[in-house]
């Protein structure tokens, strides 16, 4: 990466951080999904346990290592290590969508992209810099939210019953593979739609399509229909990462100066 590309990355990041409306939008979902939602779950389960007979079906589906625990511990482990990680993937999708929409469609909308195209950077390098800026923001916010969530949950565990929360293997695969994969896919959807989208909002709506399978997986887990094991997450992560990378390459290669300045 050269200095010219670094300048674009720094400018794109500064632009989104400096724009209150979009930055608030970027931080809202991580706060809700990564901080508020897990904390409330822990509180609900540890402080106000309800009738556990409803969960018998779900308990039978649990992996053997979890099924041996008490119902409450098993339920907590299920939610924190199986369900929340799936839900957590909405964060990179949201962040990457907002960032990429601002970076690609926003620049096109405000006609600053054309000025950038007259620079001595190839179309590929301009796209690469913009994809990197969106990826950096998306990963930074997602990883920071994860660290904050682990810290807050541990404080909560300590205060409530003196135990600790140690993230399971699912979290590792989600963070290392699924989060980057979702980021790449969200950017690809935005970039792909950027040629036709007339506004940032329109581009983001198209990327919202990605949220559907995640919500489906989340609901399935939550209702007890299926338990997504760490191994399944690992496989899904690898496949989605490869698909995201290939789709992004294909999408960016399809662009020419002419299609972008239309």
């Amino acid at each position: 990466m050269n200095q010219k590309m670094k300048a674009i990355i720094a400018k794109d990041i500064r632009s989104i951080v400096g724009e209150k409306r979009y930055f608030t939008m970027l931080l809202f979902l991580p706060f809700f999904l990564g901080i508020l939602f897990p904390s409330i779950f822990v509180l609900l389960i540890k402080v106000a346990p309800t009738d556990m007979h409803d969960l018998d079906g779900l308990m039978q589906l649990l992996p053997k290592d979890l099924a041996g625990d008490s119902v409450l511990d098993a339920l907590l482990s299920l939610i924190l290590n199986q369900t929340i990680p799936i839900f957590f993937m909405l964060i990179p999708i949201m962040c990457a969508s907002v960032m990429a929409a601002s970076s690609f469609v926003g620049e096109k909308e405000k006609r600053t992209l054309e000025t950038l195209l007259y620079s001595p950077l190839s179309l590929r390098d301009i796209f690469k810099a913009k994809v990197l800026a969106s990826t950096i923001i998306s990963l930074l916010i997602t990883y920071a939210t994860f660290i904050l969530m682990v810290l807050i949950l541990n404080v909560e565990f300590q205060l409530l019953d003196g135990t600790f929360f140690i993230p399971g293997l699912s979290w590792l695969w989600v963070m290392v593979l699924l989060v980057p994969a979702c980021t790449l896919l969200a950017i690809t959807f935005i970039v792909k739609g950027s040629a036709k989208s007339k506004s940032m909002e329109e581009a983001q709506q198209k990327a919202a399509f990605l949220v559907m399978p995640i919500l489906l997986a989340f609901i399935s887990q939550f209702m007890g229909f299926v338990i997504i094991s760490p191994f399944m997450i690992l496989i899904a992560g690898v496949i989605l990462f490869i698909i995201g990378y290939l789709m992004l390459q294909k999408t960016t290669n399809a662009f020419t100066y002419e299609t972008l300045i239309k």
Partner: peptide, 8 residues
Amino acid sequence: HAMMYDQM
């Protein structure tokens, strides 16, 4: 049509 950045 080649514009510059309003926020800068």
